[in-house]
């Protein structure tokens, strides 16, 4: 027992007190800022080098639902594109993930489009079933981390559960491999109504680099209403938790 107390002492306080304002490393790539004066030439240049086609060659916008956060565009155009460490990049509308060259504007959920039931039913307790469908295990590990001693999303009653029968929704990671199509559908069907769907990570949101792979089947995602998009490669636990707090109105 004494040994345990000693360990607890050197362990110290690890939990993140304020999940809204916690600072992360400077270099962490969250919400990008694209300068207003990016030229047409530069837009084309950035679009051409982007490995996932996340940059629009005429508008110069960056689609965070496709971006793999490799920073190549910012390396090439350091005065025009800059990824800030703002991790609050989850949205509930797919189109809001497209960041325009408009300067430093925070990204928030569109309140009017949140299904009202979500807040009435799930605000104090949200149980989620995770389904990895071709995920590379980095998003999965970050989701686990969201519940660990540091991020502790359990403080808001948010938790992953084993059975879809106990869940209020599913969290999908990965581009959805063909071989997971059936299991994903069965899991979703087993969740009682009302239920939500959350996509975590670039692969889940757009298919990422796998979007045109013949081993992928995106029809489940295309045919369902998505309640929250959480971008990242992988999504940071703070992006996930802040997105959920916004969705639930915490």
């Amino acid at each position: 027992m004494l040994k345990e107390i000693k360990i607890l002492k050197s362990h110290g306080v690890q939990y993140v007190k304020d999940l809204r304002t916690q600072k992360v490393a400077e270099r962490f790539r969250g919400r990008p800022i694209i300068s207003n004066d990016i030229t047409d030439e530069e837009k084309k240049q950035a679009a051409a080098l982007c490995p996932v086609g996340a940059i629009d060659p005429t508008k110069g916008s960056i689609d965070l639902g496709r971006c793999v956060f490799c920073n190549e565009c910012a390396f090439a155009l350091p005065d025009k594109i800059h990824f800030t460490n703002d991790y609050r990049i989850a949205t509930n509308r797919r189109e809001d993930l497209i960041i325009q060259p408009r300067g430093d504007l925070p990204l928030r959920l569109k309140e009017s489009e949140i299904v009202p039931q979500i807040r009435t039913f799930f605000k104090g307790s949200l149980k989620l079933r995770q389904v990895s469908a071709g995920g590379d295990n980095s998003c999965e590990m970050e989701l686990n981390a969201a519940g660990n001693v540091n991020f502790d999303m359990g403080r808001y009653g948010i938790e992953f559960v084993a059975s879809p029968r106990h869940a209020d929704g599913i969290v999908i990671t990965g581009p959805v491999s063909k071989n997971m199509v059936t299991a994903l559908r069965i899991t979703y069907d087993a969740v009682p109504d009302p239920k939500i769907i959350i996509l975590v990570g670039t692969d889940a949101i757009s298919g990422g680099l796998f979007a045109d792979s013949p081993a992928i089947d995106r029809s489940f995602i295309e045919n369902h209403r998505i309640d929250l998009y959480v971008p990242g490669n992988p999504a940071h636990p703070l992006t996930f938790i802040n997105g959920l707090m916004d969705l639930l109105g915490i």
């Binding site: 071709g134 491999s177 063909k178 071989n179 997971m180 299991a183 680099l209 796998f210 792979s213 081993a215």
Partner: peptide, 11 residues
């Protein structure tokens, strides 16, 4: 196994 197959070698 196989559920996670994404066709990486092909890509």
């Amino acid at each position: 196994l196989g559920y996670q197959h994404r066709g990486i070698e092909h890509l």
